[in-house]
């Protein structure tokens, strides 16, 4: 523990107030989302506690607001603050799983391509290049659409969450693959890898226990920046109505619902989930930027 507090990383973290603040904000977001079922003032999924009388309450500081509902209520009388906390949980979980998925796929492909070289390399990288030609949101939409067409509706509602994770994950792997391949190409010719090869270790083992640990630090940076991107992608898909199922609303779903009430004056139903989304994404982005600079040996 002491070693950590003495390290350069901790020093560069402490000396950047923006980073400290965004770390605190991100931590608050994560805890608020994870502990939603414990600390949220209401349970938006408990139909018994919902009262239509309380629908469309403005935030508590407005004239008609109710102090019980700090950020107001939506069309069904759900407390917005609780709905946002539960929604952030879905958004964060989908974003996190999607990043893990694309990291695993991307790192594996990058390692194999970089270490094996030759035809395997050019085939895998060709696929990555082709996919990179298209914006990832388009790829995610297509994957989602194809799965939607391929499985029956009842089945789809059950697996919708996994479909979204898969779609976003698939749309982002080439970035990881390219970076890892680049570093693997450098590592592969170093002496420790040659030594491992000489003593007869299998390629699989060399890749896993020798090359992999040495190519992971850029992956960490990309993964952080990708988390904010994945959260945004999920919100976009859900906003378009093809993301998470309506039974598990994410922040994007909440904004979609609120969008319908923009014209009747109930602005808070769309705006507060929107603010929550921006705060979350911005803090993760700033953390990622800091991590990139902190781990970059050129800038030290």
């Amino acid at each position: 523990m002491k070693a950590f507090f003495d390290s350069d990383i901790w020093w560069s973290f402490r000396s950047s107030p923006v980073t400290v603040i965004s770390a605190i904000v991100a931590a608050v977001c994560v805890f608020g989302a994870m502990l939603a079922s414990v600390i949220a003032p209401h349970n938006p999924f408990d139909l018994a506690s919902l009262q239509l009388m309380d629908a469309f309450k403005p935030p508590s500081w407005e004239a008609e607001g109710d102090p019980v509902y700090v950020l107001g209520t939506d069309d069904q009388g759900r407390d917005m603050l609780s709905a946002i906390m539960y929604g952030a949980r879905v958004s964060l979980m989908v974003g996190f799983c999607a990043v893990v998925f694309s990291t695993v796929v991307g790192v594996t492909v990058g390692l194999v391509a970089g270490y094996m070289g030759g035809k395997v390399d050019s085939l895998l990288m060709r696929i990555a290049d082709i996919q990179l030609t298209f914006p990832s949101i388009l790829v995610a939409l297509l994957v989602d659409g194809v799965v939607r067409a391929a499985v029956p509706r009842e089945v789809h509602d059950q697996i919708a969450l996994f479909v979204v994770i898969f779609a976003i994950g698939v749309s982002n792997w080439p970035q990881f693959a390219r970076t890892v391949r680049g570093s693997t190409l450098v590592e592969r010719n170093k002496e420790y890898v040659q030594a491992a090869r000489v003593i007869g270790l299998s390629p699989l083992r060399i890749m896993r226990s020798h090359v992999l640990p040495n190519v992971m630090s850029p992956v960490l940076v990309i993964a952080t920046l990708n988390l904010s991107f994945a959260i945004l992608s999920e919100a976009t898909l859900s906003f378009l109505g093809v993301g998470v199922p309506p039974t598990q609303p994410s922040l994007g779903t909440l904004i979609r619902i609120g969008n319908d009430f923009l014209f009747s004056g109930e602005w808070w139903i769309a705006i507060f989930p929107g603010i929550a989304l921006i705060v979350m994404v911005l803090s993760v982005n700033l953390l990622g930027d800091w991590l990139r600079d902190a781990l970059n040996p050129k800038l030290r």
Binding site: S228, L232, A235, T236, F239, L240, I255, N259, L262, F263, G265, W267, A270, I271, G274, L277, I278, V281, L282, N285
Partner: peptide, 22 residues
């Protein structure tokens, strides 16, 4: 520009609608 990068497209649209239309 930093805010512009972090704001998702659909949210920009909603904010513009809220301010300039509603």
């Amino acid at each position: 520009s930093l805010i512009g990068v972090s704001l998702p497209t659909f949210l920009i649209g909603i904010l513009l609608i809220l301010v300039f239309s509603v």
